[in-house]
Design a binder for these strands. Structure first.
Lengths: 182, 182
DNA sequence: CAGGAGCGTTTAGGATATTGAACACATGAG
DNA sequence: CTCATGTGTTCAATATCCTAAACGCTCCTG
């Protein structure tokens, strides 16, 4: 097992899409410490490392068990996608929540009448996708369009956005967001 | 998972029958540090903890995975004893090498002519046992006796000792040593 | 362009881990 | 008994970690 604590921490932090300051705040340490640890310029005490990992959260044992060298899998059979229940919107994540990646690929299923909620969504990064089946109403930055099979979208996620399936048939979308929100 | 690093380290160290100084020497740290860590008066840096565990040796992941609260198993079917090959002397350890215990119980089998070697054995602690089957010649501190089924022995392991099966049938012994040598 | 907000990095100084040497206690040998 | 050797613990000094604040950078907005 490589004891590159810095690389491990950086990998874990990025897996969760957190900035050094964000993680530091959750963990109750300073962003500087996170930086120094990730550069291996200090070897953190067990207690600080635990505090940091509690901010993720992740257990110390899991942290040291992580295999950074393993090649990520390439093929994901349907049954190996990670199901993320979200009411009447079915989300299947490609690659699992813990996989190290800079992007989240989702296979989304909107039941008739399903939507992403009253509140407009806003978060970091960018997202895009293609409608595979059915029709979906997409609102981004005040602009609303209805997309059909074959149509696509792409926008900065900081723009308020919402998905609604107003039709009578299920809508199926394949999307990607970076950095990964899930 | 309880993060009582001190208790964990003490447990691990004692599992291996090491003193603080012994472990410190192997690990390249001072005995004082081991003492302070075990009392939880300091939270060691990951690098020091790794150095310490390298002296055992044990991986960091295993260290944090250790479950100190689990009740040790009580019953050990024959096939669950840990086989310790030692030439023509068969040793079966009760409870596994990593189990936390202050004593090693062994089920020993001496083939005809088998012995514990030319050199007299000397080590820390005490040991005792009962001959279950066959006959064995036991030398302890210059005194030699031949024990038969039903006979027993007990001595301080610092006394030079040796076991030899001079008979034509296998000899079977159940023994205990504390602290555990294995 | 300036300004602001985000990012990771660096630095000085206070807090903490670690060392080296001493301590107190127990055991076995002479 | 004394001495030697083992154990774990403690303490002052030093090395290292950790914080708070600043820095440089990029990206976005006006």
């Amino acid at each position: 097992m490589s004891l590159d604590v810095g690389a491990r921490l950086r990998a874990v932090r990025q897996m969760y899409g957190l900035s050094q300051r964000e993680l530091a705040k959750r963990a109750g340490v300073t962003n500087g410490l996170i930086s120094l640890i990730e550069q291996n310029r200090v070897s953190p005490s067990v207690s600080s490392l635990k505090k940091v990992l509690d901010g993720v959260p992740m257990a110390l044992a899991d942290f040291f068990t992580l295999d950074l060298t393993q090649k990520p899998p390439v093929f994901f059979p349907r049954e190996e996608l990670t199901e993320i229940g979200a009411g009447r919107v079915g989300l299947r994540l490609v690659g699992g929540r813990l996989a190290k990646r800079s992007m989240a690929i989702l296979h989304e299923h909107y039941e008739p009448g399903a939507d992403t909620g009253e509140e407009m969504l806003t978060h970091e990064g960018e997202e895009g996708g293609v409608v595979v089946r059915g029709r979906i109403e997409l609102t981004v930055g005040g602009e609303t369009r209805t997309l059909s099979a074959g149509d696509a979208y792409y926008f900065r996620s900081s723009l308020p956005h919402r998905f609604r399936n107003l039709s009578r048939e299920e809508c199926e979308i394949v999307s990607a967001s970076a950095p990964p929100t899930f």
